[in-house]
Amino acid sequence: MSTGNFLYGVAMLLFLIGFYTVLARPSLIKKIIGINIMETSVFLFLISVGSRRGGSAPIILSGVKDYVNPLPQVVVLMAMVIAVGTTALALSMAVKIFESSGAGERRG
């Protein structure tokens, strides 16, 4: 089993764990944690797509020939920033929902 496929499987599992959290856990904060787990799993997937066995960081050094592909990393970096924004927005909503309903739990 190559590292790549192994990591794809791990990412899949983490994604499902996150998905379960979003669907099944009643607490809003837990749901947001679930979203974060899903996000990191997708990032893990993207990074493992870009990585090569024995590849080095995409920094030009003398003597290094085999770089990992930098493009997925750029993608992940931007997606991470967006993820923080989403998390912040979601958390502020959760706080407001808690404040105006008196409980952080979602009903219905």
Binding site: F43, S48, A57, P58, V76, M80, L91
Partner: peptide, 22 residues
């Protein structure tokens, strides 16, 4: 996996900022 920059970012953002927000 060969993504040190991202690892740093994850430490700062994921384990730092996000957790503070939480």
């Amino acid at each position: 996996l060969g993504a040190p920059v991202l690892a740093l970012a994850e430490v700062a953002i994921g384990a730092g900022v996000t957790v503070v927000l939480f």
